[in-house]
Simulated scan of single mutants.
Amino acid sequence: MDSLIVEHGTDRTIVRLERPRTLNSIDQTMVDELHTVCAQLELEPRVLIVTGTRTERGGIFASGADISQLRDRRRHDALRGINSSIFARIAALPMPVIAAIDGYALGGGAELAYAADFRIATTRVKIGNPEPNLGIIAAAGGCWRLVELVGEPVAKEILLAGRVLSADEALAIRLVSEVCEPDELLDRANALADRISGFDPLAVQVTKQVIHAPRAAHPVIDNLAQALLFESPEKAQRMDDFIQKRDARKGR
Rank of each mutant, 00 (worst) to 15 (best):
Q28W: 00
K235G: 00
G52R: 03
N223E: 15
A116N: 03
R21T: 14
P130C: 07
L146M: 14
L79P: 00
I5E: 09
A110M: 15
S3C: 11
E56S: 14
R238H: 07
D117Q: 02
P20C: 11
R252Y: 06
I173W: 03
V37P: 04
A100L: 11
A65S: 12
R73V: 02
D102F: 01
L160M: 14
E152C: 04
S177V: 13
V15M: 07
G135E: 06
F61R: 06
L4P: 03
Y114W: 11
R124F: 06
R73D: 09
D183Y: 04
M95N: 03
D27N: 15
T123E: 13
A121D: 10
I243N: 06
C38H: 01
H8A: 07
Q209V: 10
H35N: 10
A91P: 05
H35Q: 06
L228D: 02
F87S: 02
V15Y: 06
E56V: 09
G108L: 04
Q28I: 08
N190R: 15
L202S: 08
E231Y: 01
G59E: 15
L229E: 05
S3T: 14
Q237E: 15
R71P: 00
G103W: 02
R46T: 03
I14Y: 01
P214E: 13
G162Y: 13
D194N: 11
S85M: 10
A115G: 11
F230P: 00
R124D: 14
L34I: 07
S3K: 14
I14P: 02
I90S: 09
R12V: 04
L112K: 10
M30R: 01
C143I: 12
L79C: 02
H218E: 05
Y104C: 04
H35T: 02
N223V: 12
R188A: 11
G198Y: 03
R19T: 15
V147W: 01
Q40K: 04
K208Q: 12
S177P: 00
A116V: 07
